[in-house]
Amino acid sequence: MIRLLSLACCLVAALPVLAAEIKTRDRRSGFDFMTPSSQDMQRDDMLNPGMLWVLEGEALWQQQAANAPSCAGCHGDAKDSMRGAAARYPAFNDRLNRPINLQQRINLCRSENQQQPAFEPESRPLLALSAFIGAQSRGLPIAPPEDARLAPHLENGRQFFKTPMGQLGLSCAQCHDDNWGGRLAGAPIPQAHPTGYPIYRLEWQTLGSLQRRLRNCLTGIRAEPFDWDAPEMVELELYLMKRAAGMNIETPAVRP
């Protein structure tokens, strides 16, 4: 019996330690890991470079397309109509029968209601509109929709987060659940909560989307990036937003 017990102990010890999800009370925005000067840059709209995109997005919101309404023509004042919108995406789209992110929602609106070609991924106008719409949720808690149709996609996203990938064989969870706060080279590893996208990343010297950031991580572990808006990417976005539910939106955030 004792022998059996000790064998069981050995087996347990040999199993991989399962990544523990971060407890709600321990969650921290990437903002908290930044230097005071970067925090000041984000806090002050006069210093935050992301505000340039927000202003550009505001102009695009009003801009009339040929023979088609502007965003404002249908949605009115974004301060009211877009308040909380970014906090709810990705959301399930009936026509496509899958979750879509905010950028995909903007592009669907363009093709369906404005008869305009979709903006290219990561293009300036798409980032500007995303930043403008995102900023209308600043200070509001991330609130993923309670939609049963999202459940399988959310689970796919969770699995993705925990799957080791690339030549270096690392999962998202190994860094961002198990080792947040530690230093990778000189820089602290944050918890990977998408509270402020699109973000102005100092390393990029420009504004970029969550997917651009995810591609950076995939390249870092020497994994093959996914196509823009690939279902796997949107499912990962969905899981990250669920994981950060209740945390406040900071768009446009500044990050190192």
Binding site: M165, G166, Q167, A223
Partner: peptide
Amino acid sequence: NPASIMPAYYKIDGLQRVGAAW
């Protein structure tokens, strides 16, 4: 230690989605 974050430096099998260059 299967849970180690130390990459396997001399291994090419059992990896997922390795980038084209690698």
